[in-house]
Design a binder for these strands. Structure first.
Lengths: 229, 229, 229, 229
DNA sequence: CATGAATGAGGGTTCATTCAT
DNA sequence: GATGAATGAACCCTCATTCAT
């Protein structure tokens, strides 16, 4: 009821909060601009001065938010990783056979790799990073590979996926997915959902166990169902 | 027949010939060294001085064979393109339905992308090139995309491939194939042939038309066969 | 006796006084921290940000007490100079022959150069200062040189010091004393008093005129001998 | 006799030799210019661009001879060390009692510290160097200290030097000697020899053991007296 | 008073490329 | 044809200092 109440209550903290938020927003703006330019032009062909210019600040101002150009890159990878990690974790903890989860992984991957931070893993070169960060990024990449392999192996076990070399199959799928980063921006007519669905089916149909007569009735249904979404 | 004969025959030009050959061999050596180092370390992280060093020559000596670092890169792309072009042309001119040719394209692509020059298209960044060369490289890339799309479309027409979006399907396949360049060197246990065969089948089975009863007898056999290997 | 008494007495001016004192104390704290870090790391390798950090304040806060980094340095020299000036003046005004006063100067110098501000003259580089301040500092240094020379000359006159080049002798002594700043912190086992006494004797014994007839015969010989070399 | 003979004889080597000499001369010129400017202005206040300017070359040209600014500094120390090392070694291996050798060390030190490279140890700050080089320089400095201490201790043993704390005495002498670097350039009227001789005598007379019985009675008294203070 | 943010002025280093020999 | 040397253009990063809040 009393107007200043809220003000009084939050008074001691507000400045801090506001400051921090403003700061975080700026830091974020730097990252968003940087990732766009890195993706567009390439990391090493993007001087920080240009990034700063487009943000209407000066080059050293960036150093209020990051310790080095490399740290910006590292942070971009980290943000990408958070997305992958969250999505993959959710899928892994959910119910479903190997094939289903594999398709979910594909859908998730498509949704992430079509975002700026998601694209970093596919389009930026982790050799620009120092030893430690590079190791971290590569660990993430291996973790994604593994996520796919695990579901493929699970699918083979539970009969939802035909026998194959899980490692190679995972490489093929991830390769196809990473490739999206190369053409997505330029082929604007397709929605992310459409791409996700198409890849989820196209990349797995070939892996799905061939419909035995018994299964031949069920599989088409599943396919039809998933196609609806 | 006699060993020196050839020498005698070419005698007047021999110096020229020899010179030119020696020159070409050196030029070639530069390219081979350069591509390896570019692939290993990245183009812009590979100073020409290091390339020269490993060849036991000096940096300016490189300028006897190439006008610029960029020209080296350009030439590498060109050599890669020659391979793709030759293989693709041969396949396109051959007999067979869409599915067959698609598989042949995949096999050819695997064989080329596992070579140094073939890897350039997938692992080097054409944005390092100047306007003209970049345009040329991108035309090549589009041409490969098109090659795959055409066979997919042909396969859809001739019934060997199930209905799908040829552009997306081609992107998926090429993405999977380009991905090979990311892991091939590190996963040494697999032969190129094995990879080629696995990818040719794995990436197409899902695209192949659903086995009619007539076909359903044949397809499993093929699958079984490939599994044995 | 009662705690608040002092507070009550100064009551009307207390805020001002307190303020000023608080301010001076802070200014002082800055100087004490700065001198320690300048001596430890070197002036130009000590960013103000680090000084501020260790004081748990922020960099621009320093500018409330000093107009520039250079002013801090200048002030440090000034504080050192006050000490030298006070001690030297006291000695010069006291009684005693040249040798005695020379020894007193040495003792005083040791006591001052083993303090932080005293060390500034020996360990910091006055070329970091601007024209005016640098001139001032150099005037101080010359003044110290002169103080030593004057007593040496006086000693020569009054017979307490043997004939020698006063300028060179003063340089030697001051050099030896300044050198203390290079090792004092690291050779913790010696008390300032011990060092002062040792230097006062060691650096002058050779300069002192032979006190007795017995000596007057021996000393020239030694000198003659060593001169032969 | 034949003019070109020499030319022919040295022919195959001359280019190499000439090249190498020219290169070494230039490298040397860089070092000589650098040391002068470093001593004059201070290391960190001397941009490489200015050094290059005075040599009529451009900044990056310096990188043909040195890998970094720090390496130049390091090399300067090394050249200084060579001089000290050579002189000290010669003296240590020679004949003579402690006092004699101590005086020789002093003379040598004066001769070296009045040269540009010799001055580096006294006037440049080894904290500008990286870990390794700094350690090396400090080892050198300790070695010089030790050289003096050893002779003082030897002199005490052989009776040529009166009992005293060798460490402190060495510090005092080296301090006095290093101080020369602070005033030598500016006090041009004195020859190096004169300074060397004056310091050799002035700094040791006080340390020399009283030569005669006559003195042995007087000296303790003086010491006792001054100790009362 | 104190703070976060921003700036301007450099400085060291790298590297493709050119040139005289 | 090859070399050593040199250059110019960038680029990253640091830091003292200022300013609005």
């Amino acid at each position: 009821m009393i107007a200043p109440k809220k003000r009084i209550e939050t008074s001691p903290w507000a400045p801090f909060e506001d400051r921090r938020r403003a700061r975080d927003e700026k830091r974020d703006a730097v990252l968003r601009m940087a990732v766009r330019m890195f993706l567009e032009e390439g990391y090493h062909r993007t001087p920080l001065a240009k990034v700063a210019d487009r943000l209407n600040i000066t080059k050293p101002a960036l150093y209020n938010y990051f310790r080095s150009k490399e740290e910006i890159l590292h942070e971009l990878y980290r943000r990408g990783d958070e997305q992958y990690e969250a999505s993959f974790g959710r899928i892994e903890r959910a119910e479903g056979d190997g094939l289903h989860k594999l398709r979910e992984l594909i859908r998730a991957y498509v949704h992430i790799i079509t975002t700026d931070s998601g694209m970093c893993f596919a389009r930026l070169d982790d050799r620009e990073l120092g030893e430690d960060a590079r190791t971290e990024v590569r660990r993430s990449k291996r973790r994604y590979d593994t996520a796919f392999r695990v579901q493929i192996a699970a699918g083979i076990d539970d009969g939802s996926i035909r026998t194959c070399n899980p490692k190679l199959a995972a490489f093929a799928i991830i390769g196809a997915l990473n490739g999206i980063a190369d053409w997505y921006r330029l082929e604007g007519e397709l929605s992310v959902e459409a791409i996700a669905e198409e890849f989820a089916l196209r990349l797995t149909d070939g892996l799905a166990a061939p419909p035995s007569r018994a299964r031949s009735a069920a599989a088409p249904k599943a396919a039809a169902k998933s196609r609806k979404r």
